[in-house]
Amino acid sequence: CHSECLGNCSQPDDPTKCVACRNFYLDGRCVETCPPPYYHFQDWRCVNFSFCQDLHHKCKNSRRQGCHQYVIHNNKCIPECPSGYTMNSSNLLCTPCLGPCPKVCHLLEGEKTIDSVTSAQELRGCTVINGSLIINIRGGNNLAAELEANLGLIEEISGYLKIRRSYALVSLSFFRKLRLIRGETLEIGNYSFYALDNQNLRQLWDWSKHNLTITQGKLFFHYNPKLCLSEIHKMEEVSGTKGRQERNDIALKTNGDQASCENELLKFSYIRTSFDKILLRWEPYWPPDFRDLLGFMLFYKEAPYQNVTEFDGQDACGSNSWTVVDIDPPLRSNDPKSQNHPGWLMRGLKPWTQYAIFVKTLVTFSDERRTYGAKSDIIYVQTDATNPSVPLDPISVSNSSSQIILKWKPPSDPNGNITHYLVFWERQAEDSELFELDYCLKGLKLPSRTWSPPFESEDSQKHNQSEYEDSAGECCSCPKTDSQILKELEESSFRKTFEDYLHNVVFVPRKT
């Protein structure tokens, strides 16, 4: 048989008469490798580009789960590009990614509803959504962080984005990388972005840091009482949809009607710091009717980097990364020049730590249904340095008659930039024990000054392991946590139920 035959053949030295091919099969003959313009397919066939392209389009058009959109890589027609490569849609070739590779997620039936953290986790790592997304989240724990972890990498949506009755959302900033909504599939009414009845939605994105392009379709905003109209108009300008909307697409009466839409800028007039305090004062603000001013709200939190936005980490279910302080308005003076500047002394802060701070007014709604208010920009203030805590785990070892090696770990709280350490030492008198000992005694162990690591005695271990207080009263049991108490109650309830079950099964009433 021919060298490319495997198993047997019907005619000697003829690659077209093989029972099976050793390498690849091409047009009725066995070959060692697939010549151009053919590609290896499933490690035994040679196919042309049209064959591989037909497989790709067949799966793409069917949208069946589990099928493969075949691509070409290293002269092979394979189910998908290997790690580190992405497909070129024009020629199906796998090309190296520039940075992290995109991950295209194809949605069944063309859309997916995100109504819980669990459903959001199914899209973790996706960068391109081939379909439409509907966000409908009523509640949950730590929602802002969970949504950002699972949806934060999405850069492109081919269909539309719909935010509907998501009472738990305060902001859409968890879509931190969303840059493009194509609108290839539109919501009824030709809408590519749809926001309806979101009672706590206050911000779409921080438009000073976020760009969003909507290729096709219109915007729809109705019944978002805490979303200011200025935020919607800003989205029109940034996304390129200005002029597409009709009169009733953006409701003037049901958007922002319960919001404090600040239209003035508060400026800080005085800032002073110490290692654990920050004193702030800002310019006074009074609405047209000074009785509408209820006070100020001061927001602050630790910020290692200057990239904080107002609604980071917030949701309507209680999660809030900001510390909020309510401040009463100052006494009002008739003389504008003698107006008191409101302020606040922030206490209990960490030394040498940068804080993000902003302040906003708290006002009631005027009778004319106009909203007044003022808010400052987010500023960054760093507390002063102070003395560091003591170095940890000092170790001293003498390696000769004239040297001592000293080692330690950095302090747990540096409280500033540590530039150097101060080492103090003092000579001590020799131990009298060394002169009084009889060095001729056998088995004498000389006193040693070398360091030995501390260890816990058996008594201390027994005390720590004991669940009861000892007789001397030195140790006591740790208080039980809520989960331990709940577990004990469940076990007790189970024992009672099981005992009742045994009584009912074992003891049967005697027939009379």
Rank of each mutant, 00 (worst) to 15 (best):
N387I: 12
A303Q: 13
I154F: 00
Q245T: 13
F268H: 01
Q339V: 08
K267W: 11
S376T: 08
P342M: 07
F268Q: 01
R347T: 09
F193K: 02
N224L: 06
I232M: 05
Q306F: 02
D328R: 13
F193V: 10
L108T: 13
T127F: 15
K103L: 04
P388N: 02
Q199H: 04
S239Y: 15
G348K: 03
S119M: 08
L201I: 06
G217N: 10
P304M: 13
K177E: 15
L298R: 01
K226I: 06
R165I: 04
P288E: 10
T241Y: 09
Y355R: 00
Y372K: 02
R244K: 14
L265Y: 03
T323R: 08
F193Q: 02
V397R: 14
R244Y: 12
W286G: 05
R165H: 05
Q245F: 06
N263G: 10
A251E: 10
Q403V: 05
E122S: 08
S402Y: 14
G318L: 13
L186H: 15
E122I: 01
A120P: 02
E236A: 04
S119L: 06
S239K: 12
L293D: 01
N200G: 06
Q354W: 13
Y305F: 14
F220S: 11
T361P: 03
L169S: 12
T118I: 01
G140M: 11
G110F: 05
L229G: 06
Q216E: 00
E264Q: 05
S400H: 12
I163L: 00
P225H: 03
L293I: 02
R176T: 14
W282K: 02
L265A: 09
N340S: 11
L392A: 15
A259M: 05
T215W: 03
S376L: 01
Q403H: 14
G343F: 03
E231G: 14
K409H: 09
A316M: 07
L186V: 09
L201F: 13
D335P: 11
S119E: 04
K209R: 12
C126G: 05
W352K: 09
L293F: 03
K234P: 01
W352I: 15
R244G: 09
K253Q: 13
N399G: 14
N255A: 02
N255V: 05
W322N: 12
W205R: 02
P411N: 03
L362E: 08
Y160G: 04
L362Y: 04
P391D: 02
I214R: 08
D289V: 03
P330G: 07
L123P: 04
Y191P: 15
G348H: 10
S173Y: 13
I378Y: 11
A145N: 12
T371D: 14
R182I: 06
L229S: 10
N211D: 07
I129W: 06
W322G: 15
F311H: 06
Y300R: 14
R370Y: 05
